[in-house]
């Protein structure tokens, strides 16, 4: 029966020891231990937050870099395109200009050739006329060298007239 009946003496000592234990532990053990653990937990939380923040900042930075790179690439493409167009235009312009120039030169050359040719023809004609005259003179001289020959010519001329 006394197994399940509280004992006054033991109750007194238990109460005394437990209360002293509670007081001492609460003041000198639990307080420093819990505050140290809390401080450490806070430190860890802060460190994790900082890491997270840094990571997101890094990501933002990366994204910005990518954006700038993309823009630069687009601009470069644009510049290249424009340059190519300008070059093409210049080539085109140069081509057409040189063609007109060439055409002009050819035209000029043709003119010159034509005029030279005309001059040469005129001179040739003059020479041919002079030569013909000389030859005709020499022939006529030969024809008219004797009387017979003069007569034969006269006859012949007359014959021509008759026939007409």
């Amino acid at each position: 029966m006394d197994l399940i009946l509280p004992d006054l003496g033991l109750l007194f000592w238990t109460a005394l020891v437990f209360c002293i234990l509670l007081f001492l532990l609460a003041k000198f053990a639990w307080k420093p231990i819990l505050s140290a653990v809390n401080a450490r937990e806070q430190k860890i939380t802060e460190a994790l937050e900082l890491a997270e923040k840094t990571r997101s900042e890094m990501q933002a930075l990366q994204a910005e870099n990518d954006k700038i790179l993309k823009e630069a690439r687009a601009e470069r493409d644009n510049i290249l395109k424009e340059a190519k167009e300008a070059a093409n235009q210049m080539i085109e312009a140069a081509k057409s200009k040189s063609k007109t120039e060439a055409d002009k030169i050819v035209e000029n050359a043709r003119h010159t050739i034509n005029s030279e040719k005309a001059a040469a023809m005129a001179e040739l004609k003059t020479h041919v006329a002079a030569l013909s005259l000389e030859i005709a003179e020499k022939v006529i001289r030969g024809e008219l060298a004797s009387d017979d020959k003069q007569k034969a010519l006269a006859d012949k001329l007359v014959g021509d007239i008759n026939m007409n």
């Binding site: 020891v17 437990f18 002293i20 234990l21 001492l24 532990l25 000198f28 053990a29 639990w30 420093p32 231990i33 140290a36 653990v37 401080a39 450490r40 430190k43």
Partner: peptide, 23 residues
């Protein structure tokens, strides 16, 4: 038992007091 708890817990508290918030 009470003395044992006090010794153990005080040594833990002493560790934190000496080293601060470390592992």
């Amino acid at each position: 038992g009470a003395i044992l708890i006090l010794v153990i817990m005080f040594s833990i508290a002493g560790f934190y007091k000496k080293n601060g918030a470390v592992a």
